[in-house]
Design a protein around this nucleic acid. Structure first.
Lengths: 347, 347
DNA sequence: GTGAAAGCGCTAACAT
DNA sequence: ATGTTAGCGCTTTCAC
């Protein structure tokens, strides 16, 4: 069959239903003023011709595409896969679709932004590691709402919805302290990413408050990946056999999993007996039997909801609010990589 | 800033550059006949106005949106996340984007197809979801190329690109046989999915050829998920303590991981000493230290390439070929969940 | 409540 | 090589 089989248009439907083309348009527009009777006739004719309104054409006049761009950096972190899924499901419920833009590791995000603009998306959600002001500026300039998901640009007025990452870092610090740890290491993620920076900062701040010395906290690089976590742990713990840390905070779960595997399988470290360990995100993988990872849960559904409310897709004529920052508290989830402190059994 | 900030059109650019609007269009059309000089003027003016061609508008005339729909059911299987990533990257290279349609577990896929049609996508790739003939028929009828990725509809003329799943099942059977296994279990995935069916069928066929009795092969249901694999293994191996199988084939890696965790952590089964085990897909997770899963690797990149070639996005006027079936051989990857047979050391 | 008509921003003949 | 013109399929005034 030729690919040029032209689909039925609203005119075809109108002709068959014996009404005007505008009537057809109205029949498919929720809340348009049309008689039940005519709507019925139209819908019937449409069904016969298997007519579906062409949303490309309607976008042209309405200036709304019902498409939201989701810019993703890395999908090797399962957390962002859940985020993608959550957004897609949620958006579909309201008749919108997600257009995916994947950024290669160090790909220029400016190339992506041009694509985004082409497609006249109604909004953009940016979860890629490096958010550029150029990207947010262009969107602002065009009146396209954009929100940064779990990241922000310091000093910019771009809106963002994120987990309270610093607060989460503090929670981990407290858990370690309660369990009696004294010497620490943290495996950080992307050094340029605010997510990792904040988690590390919160952790260290809380540690210093408790009287720990800065020299008791080693900071390693894990590049936000399983392999990075694995390599960082292997390197650090092979080197310092005598003065090893007794607590390790990995800035996300996927790195924590990598670190755990390196420590247990390569170095024979027992967790939590020899070393206590915590992650961040609460991905399902971390809940599995081999890991049982203590972590901070990011409330994804809530964050998605907030993002959508900031995006405010339904009132496109509104002025876009700038500089919104919605930090959302995470929740510490105790599992078995930190021994439950004795004090928890008291009272 | 008001969201209504209207973006520059090709007319604005034309006016500024002192050329006609069509010149602007040509300047942005690769291979259009335009003088270098004029193109330069246009591009300059465009830059000044930060003009980007509106691809929605151009789709209306060209009838090509440069958007490919990817219909995904389940993203809890990491394999399909890789598939998504691969498609997105590959398509972006050629200036196309992926529009995601996620199907809820038992959601009506017919609802999704209507959405797909609205967006005038250039092609649709259906994966990790149940394929309905209704969906493929509608696409065919409209002249929208569709290919089923790693699934097919028996008796239909819908095109499909897939791993040679039956062949992969046979490869696993042979590995078990070579390692001396005698009593078998397989954890199947979605009973309605051809992917799972074929893998199971290939496995059993090969077993029967080797003289095994059908009664020596138990088939369990694992619903294609980690939890399903976990539950199936737990149930089967708790029940039959005396006559346990000595080899377990899980129809995909994610179920194999679930089964392994249940067996080792709940039942104390040693792998491969007490039980040898294999998966299918070769997801990165299965390569990790706690699993080291022997499996069949699906050549994702090749499959993606084939899919795109069947989709044939660049020759839209071509007749759509129907009923293409491109099975691609997988590769057995030996890791540590099947003991290497002695014969491998010979010769 | 309904129809006629004017675009939305672009591409693709068609002239020149 | 360039400009002119006619749509693409829809939404949206505007009359009636």
């Amino acid at each position: 069959m030729a690919r040029t089989t032209s689909r039925a248009t609203s005119f075809d439907v109108a002709a068959l239903a014996g009404v005007s083309q505008s009537a057809v348009s109205r029949a498919f527009t929720p809340g348009a003023s049309i008689a039940d009777d005519t709507r019925h006739k139209v819908l019937e004719a449409a069904a016969k011709l298997s007519y579906v309104p062409n949303s490309i054409a309607s976008s042209l006049t309405t200036k709304r595409s019902n498409i939201v761009a989701l810019i993703l950096g890395d999908m090797s972190n399962p957390f962002y896969v859940h985020v993608l899924h959550a957004f897609s499901n949620r958006l579909q419920e309201e008749g919108r679709q997600v257009l995916i833009f994947t950024l290669d590791r160090n790909a220029d995000s400016d190339a992506a932004i041009l694509q985004v603009l082409k497609y006249q998306v109604d909004g953009v959600i940016l979860t890629a590691a490096q958010a550029s002001t150029r990207m947010t500026d262009i969107c602002h300039e065009r009146g396209i709402p954009i929100v940064l998901f779990n990241r922000y640009i310091p000093g910019s007025d771009a809106s963002c919805v994120r987990c309270d990452n610093a607060g989460g870092g503090r929670q981990i610090a407290e858990a370690f302290l309660a369990a009696g740890a004294q010497k620490f290491a943290v495996i950080a993620g992307d050094p340029k990413g605010t997510t990792s920076q904040d988690r590390v900062r919160g952790f260290i701040e809380r540690m210093l408050e408790s009287g720990a010395r800065r020299s008791d906290i080693a900071v390693l690089e894990g590049r936000s990946s399983y392999d990075g976590g694995y390599a960082a742990a292997l390197k650090h713990f092979s080197a310092n056999t005598q003065s090893r840390p007794d607590a390790l905070f990995c800035v996300n779960d996927i790195m924590a999993m990598g670190a755990m595997d390196a420590l247990r399988f390569k170095l024979g470290v027992k967790i939590p007996q020899d070393l206590m360990l915590a992650g961040f995100d609460d991905i399902p993988e971390g809940r599995r039997a081999p890991y049982q990872l203590t972590t901070v849960r990011q409330p994804v559904d809530l964050m998605v909801e907030e993002t959508l409310s900031v995006l405010n897709l339904d009132q496109p004529s509104q002025t876009i609010e700038r500089g919104i920052d919605r930090p959302i508290k995470g929740k510490l989830i105790w599992r078995s990589t930190i021994p439950v402190p004795v004090s928890n059994f008291r009272a």
